[in-house]
Amino acid sequence: MAQTATASKSVKFIITRQDSPESKSYTEEFEVPYRPGMNVISALMEIQRNPKNAQGQTTAPVCWDSNCLEEVCGACSMVINGKPRQACAALIDKLEQPIRIQPMKTFPVVRDLIIDRSRMFTALKRVKAWIPIDGTYDLGPGPRMAESKRQWAYELSKCMTCGVCLEACPNVNEKTDFIGPAAISQVRLFNAHPTGEMNKEERLEALMQDGGIEGCGNSQNCVRACPKGIPLTTSIAEMNKETTKHMFKRWLSV
């Protein structure tokens, strides 16, 4: 009985699609039967089960990327009603209809809503976002981290490389080579670690390369968009301070 009551309600979608990385994008409308508590991913699953557009024509099911479905993996980032966010955490009940879904075009589109976030992982490699602990012998335990520091550093460690901050940033685009806020914040995280700190100059110098921290123009959209609430602008300002100090230290020590 409950099913017959809800079957009459439907949810409208306007989805931006693209068949291949080189082809042109187009929009297609869908109508999906409403179920209580549904989110954008479950609606996309419904389209997958019954791939018919709003006109009733059979079409290729919409492709998307997702993994954890609990907003910790960062895979299902897409632009929903103009805002980049995680589709798994986008509840239909809280969205204005028709729901417009687009891929995050700051990244290369692979197909439909699937994007290639490789540039973010390249950026993490560039800034050496790891802690080197491997040696030819046991290096023993590292220095301990103060609890007061661990608490704020933990917030930075929540970054899931989802790419939402890059999509929100007006300075991450084809005209610049700016690596974006996420990697800058990771430098702060790894430079805060007592062992990671031993290599902090390497990471700061990576931020002072072309496309590094200079690309930030303080629009501060990143901190508003971040689904994990990471204080990205505080991280950027802190790294501005550290790179400035490093610059003067380098000049004055030769």
Binding site: K83, A168, P170, N173, S219, Q220, N221, R224, A225
Partner: peptide
């Protein structure tokens, strides 16, 4: 050159800091 590099997006991100950026 810096002004040319920005893709302003105050339409979707109608925030005070972003407006000042533009």
């Amino acid at each position: 050159y810096i002004a040319y590099q920005a893709n302003n997006n105050v339409g979707n991100f109608n925030y005070e800091r972003n407006i000042r950026f533009m």
